[in-house]
Design a protein around this nucleic acid. Sequence first.
RNA 1: GCGCGGGUAGCUUAGUUGGCUGGAGCACCCGGCUGAUAACCGGGAGGUCGCAGGUUCAAGUCCUGCCUCGCGCACCA
Length: 1064
Amino acid sequence: MALKSDIDVASTMGIPQPAGDYDSVALESALLSTWSDEKTFEKSVESRRKGEPFIFLEGPPTANGKPGIHHVVARTFKDLVCRWKTMQGNFVERKGGWDTHGLPVEIEVQKRLNLKSNQDILDYGMAEFNKACRESVWTYESAWREMTERMAYWCDLDNPYVTLENNYVESCWWAIKKMFDQDLLYLGHKVLPYCPGTGTSYSSHEVALGYKEVEEPSVYVKFKLTDDDVSVLAWTTTPWTLPGNVGLAVGPEVEYVRVRVTSEPENWQGSGGAIVGEELILAKDLFKDVIRHHSDEISTMKGSELVGKSYHPLFPGAVERGDSKTAWTIIEADWVTTTDGTGVVHTAVMYGEDDYNLGMKVGLPAQHTVDMKGEFIAGIHEKIDGRYVKDCDEDIIQILDEAGLLYREKMYIHDYPHCWRTGDPLLYYAMDSWFVRMTAVKERLLEFNDQVEWAPDWVGEGRFGEWLRNVKDWAISRERFWGTPLPVWRSESGEMKCLGSISELQEEVAKANAAGIDNPECPDDVDLHRPIVDDFTLLSSTGETMQREPFVMDCWFDSGCASFAQWHHPFDGGERFANNFPIDYICEGVDQTRGWFYTLLAVSTTVFDSICYKRCLSLGLILDAEGKKMSKSKGNIVDPWDHFNSEGADATRWYMVTAGAPWNPMKFDANGLKETYAKMFLTLWNVYRFHVDYAALDGFEADNAEEGTPSELDLWIRSRLQQLVAGTTEQFEQWNFHKAGRDIENFVVNDLSNWYVRRSRRRLWDEAESGDKLACQQTLHQVLVTLCRLMAPISPFISDSIHRNLVGDSVHFADWPLAGEIDEDIIARMALVRELAETGRKIRVDANRRQRLPCAEGWIVSGPDLSAYHDILAEELNVESISIENDLDRFQRIELNPNRRALGAKCRQELPQVLAEITAADHESMWEQIQAGNNPKILGYDITADDVELRRVEREGFAAKTITSEDGNDVSLVLDMTDSAELLSKGLARDITRRIQAKRKEMDLEIEATISLRVWTAEAPEIFPADEQWIINETRASSSQFQTGEGEGDFFEVDGAKVWFQVE
RNA sequence: GCGCGGGUAGCUUAGUUGGCUGGAGCACCCGGCUGAUAACCGGGAGGUCGCAGGUUCAAGUCCUGCCUCGCGCACCA
């Protein structure tokens, strides 16, 4: 292999600087200022301007909350892909973004200003309130910037898109109008959990905050049929919805029973009841649970037989019939169950989602019996008109009881949502709402989703696909203040006008003004927020005035527009959008599946009839070390700065990438991070330091140096490096960043540090120049530089620091390495050598022979030619000489292992017996038969070479072991265990040296310092003069004295020999 | 309730189309080695591969049911 590999790691600089200790925090903060001065990020992007664009879109965070560790995770995976693609030559712009609208912002501000309801906000002043929101949005911006910079997330935060800016809002308007023009936008109703106290409806997330277990009265109510002397029993936990009753739902396949009361029950308590002879209908399954009276079953029927029967309203006049044909009749609904209640569901159209949907489907009258304050409207019943519904439960029960319409009352315990701010129970309440007709584009959504490459794929197919298959129309309006205003104006008679730009607004305002309406100014930079836009009155085609629909958009709509609104498309001319759509890569937490991942696709489908992103990495949740979700209330939040300030951002990022697959939940464990730091980063640094300190000492220059003479060891690590390059690239391409990181780490720790450097240490100690030393230095240079490039996307600091010192330029300007030639043979041979070295140590342990006592000879039996490695092996094994021995039988015998796969296919059920026969057989002779082509038969089966695997096992009494190499050939190592005076002398010398060296270290002596040494031995082997001299050299003893007999100073004993020594 | 993904040693995890004795790392114990770092090497202990059935000559792997954790969705009349 050529010395300078296919990878260009030529240096543009001279001699590298010595490294010093690894201080990650100091190293990283120094680099941050270098990057800032040098504009490294900007340059790294610009230098690839001519490259193929790789389009990334930043999911905008809200800066009114503190960034946490989960944001660091997401940003690491965003960053590493962008960096990697940049190194591959792509032009990767990274525009920052901020999500600035929405309820979370309003809630923060309401808390701060102590505004408890919408009325409070209006009293405070909407303009003032929104001003406060606009400011609140930036509360933690500096915290975000600091985190972003410190963790080295390269992203342009100086020119971000901001959802509250006029340009952004205008693009959103444009998109809304596109939808409106396609008739995808419509006004409807949605039943939402609503708090009358605050005048606010809540998203499911907020509702989840307020579930409380409550005990409330539930009632069984009798609905008298009009054409039959019988009542249908229905059950409800919300008596306040009964005045709004307009229908009864039954399951068409559910079996119902008609019963006649025969006598009063015993122990009747509470209100309600029935008279003897009264007839009731309810689900057969629930009959026993509900009916307290003694009664006879008269008949049974399917729900479908009840459908269409009409009954008397409970509160006549509370709801107008209008033109409804189905009001106060029995209706079928397939969702009716018999798990509780009576199997008959009281339906009040405006106060339940199922009720509402059913009502719309069959044409029930949709009228409120409760106003927005949560009070009954006038004309229901004199006892409850105008009162807060939750206070009326008892009165309603009484009214029904007096009318003979109550069968039973029962206290009922259940979880019910409450306002998480005031604690009031929420009312499910049908409200006006604008919708995007997502159901109309469902097929397109599914088609587009198929084109997205998801990681992991099951999120796309499963969770996201499931969501799309059940897609519902998107309720995009919110009755709130701080958000993108819905740009729809409506006249009294229902004419709609949707505006798609500021200039359209100006036009319409001018038109209205011309007709005599006195509108405020509408300049080019008119603030596109409430209440300013509310104040414009427009004119309909028939000359009516039009007011803006008083809604803002769901803030998810804002971020869903990011792909084009970030460029102010189409008002900027459209070119930047054209060049940046669709997006190549987005990456967020899996919680964005129904959030951003969906809204991006929803908007691009409706507006552009296009996919939005080609690849989506969905990250798993981050949990604490115990696997619990991190939350403020649990107090188990990890502050990223704790780790930035100790192990550093590099180790933190590396840990997060290698801890597991990105899409799996990650248990963030501080000990794991520490381990990453100690194992990966300290090890890498020490390798680097070893290289660079000697390089500095020797004046090694990578670009000037003559070619050295590479050893097998050099060629091996270079091949392993190429293998690593190829593997890392492949893993990155398959989104297996965690596997790539683990492979790199394994290379650094096991191959580079624990073998290459360990085996090479003495090569660099040699002060004389040599081709061997040069080759070692060149190899280390090449390995380290390439390694930096592979690591740069994950840990951009240490890799840049090392790269700069070795090459003179930032690793972030470098190209991603292309794998060169891989010599598989050398890799396999070295693997075998390392295994033999381990095997030798095992042999010694088993034979009870200490490592420092040399063996005279070692034999390698069979296997590939390892003569190039005999020196290494001799040293590793502490053997005087290694040789090749061909007479296997001297040390080994044959064993045959059955090949279960082959035999299983052949013998099936009889496999166990065949296995037993093979085990019991004489393997030596069986193998001879097979070799001779005379296959032995067992239970009638021909046993061929394919059915068994040959193993060579050392014979008893030999200090030998056999290993099976990758190609299936066995290799054995045999050690000579005999002693000689010479060996004993050498061994003792090594033990003495080791003790003295330890003493030196203990005394904290400089490496160059000399000592004066005295050694006494008793009951010990003789130490030959050559070995005495060896001790003197190794321990840098300027004076020495060796004598026999008892001595003084430090004492130790080895294999019965007693040794005393003194070091001064 | 439905869907998705997990459950492998005390902890973190690898385990391909079913096929040799289920691998690593951390921690622990014993030993070795070391002017080699928060290191390295050998050995040990530690596993009912969540549980129970089934398919198969053979199941961590395939099938069914269940338990359990996480996430999402729905429901809570």
